[in-house]
């Protein structure tokens, strides 16, 4: 298990380099490039940003500016599974906070944190645009509507 993790990280490192090299010297492709690293690696390590800065000729301060501006980017490691619990108005009145409480209890972390084994990252969101399905929990991009705390627990246990 450990060995597999180490190997996959090493592979990820090489992939970041490949992605950066693909965009040789085109400053306007900064966001596209960062998105691709984010997708591959689940977060943007500082070392990668330095490499991006060198290859694209974009100052590091500007890359930081962009990377902190968009929520799609993360500058801290994120878990293998992303869990989002909606606390928008509709989900809130339909019991979103209770779902969140249960998920926090199961994972042992607060919203915005990542479990120490790097398996889960928990976030709250303000509206997912499907209020009729409230309360909504999204796990790795899959929407679970009209969910109960018990069902939320089942979804997480199945992963």
């Amino acid at each position: 298990m450990k060995e597999k993790k180490v190997r996959s990280e090493a592979r990820g490192g090489g992939k970041i380099e490949q992605i950066i090299n693909k965009y040789q010297g085109d400053p306007s492709s900064l966001i596209q490039l960062l998105l691709e690293i984010q997708r591959e690696n689940r977060w943007l390590p500082n070392e990668a940003l330095k490499k991006v800065s060198k290859t694209l000729g974009v100052p590091l301060s500007q890359i930081q500016h962009v990377a902190t501006f968009y929520k799609a980017f993360s500058l801290v490691p994120r878990g293998r599974h992303e869990v989002q619990v909606c606390l928008g108005t509709a989900c809130h009145v339909r019991g979103g906070p209770r779902i969140l409480d249960r998920v926090e209890e199961i994972l042992g972390i607060q919203a915005g944190q990542t479990t120490t084994d790097m398996e889960f990252t928990l976030e709250t969101v303000n509206c997912l645009g499907c209020c009729a399905l409230g309360p909504v929990m999204v796990v790795d991009g899959k929407y679970h509507g009209k969910i109960t705390p018990t069902e939320a627990e089942e979804v997480l246990k199945k992963l």
């Binding site: 100052p59 590091l60 301060s61 500007q62 930081q64 500016h65 902190t68 501006f69």
Partner: peptide, 17 residues
């Protein structure tokens, strides 16, 4: 470019790289 803005909205701030 040693100094720049990070984050946005109410959390926006200036940092040295």
């Amino acid at each position: 470019n040693a100094i720049g803005f990070v984050d946005r909205g109410t959390r926006r701030e200036v940092i040295f790289i």
